[in-house]
Design a protein around this nucleic acid. Sequence first.
DNA 1: AGGATGATGAAG
DNA 2: TTCATCATCCTA
Length: 153
Amino acid sequence: METEAYLGPEDGASHAAFRPGSHALFYGTGGHAYVFLNYGVHHCLNAITGPAGEPGCVLLRALEPMEGLAAMRRRRGAVATVRLASGPGNLTRALRVTARDNGTDLTRGALVIFAADGPRAFRIACGPRIGITRSTALPLRFWIAGHPCVSGR
DNA sequence: AGGATGATGAAG
DNA sequence: TTCATCATCCTA
């Protein structure tokens, strides 16, 4: 699992900062999905955080495929299993997440994010976010240290 | 209307 | 390093 946090207007890399006014979702409905098309090619899936009125979200950059492997391979083609959902664009393609899913409730329905139960022994590393041009120093990228599914760059 | 930009990924 | 390709923002 690999994620990045995007905050409010004080975070230069956040849409809340350089796309103010749009993306109303960003400012409310915690627990819902914020999906946008990036570079005209790739969709990015975020989980809105915080209470209504306070912008913030978590970008899902990578995850470890555990179920629905066949469907993911169908959508992604001949790629190593570890690569199936590695990278924001690859993740949404593997899960078939598109602009349609913008606003979806992530606590119920077809696209659900939940905490895995049971103890997990992994270490979470953090560092600067990837592919951004502002607020580059903030250590808001989090990933499971040494996990093969995290995206590189 | 036209141009620039961006939280990417694949190919060269 | 280049390019594909588009919603949104900025300029005129």
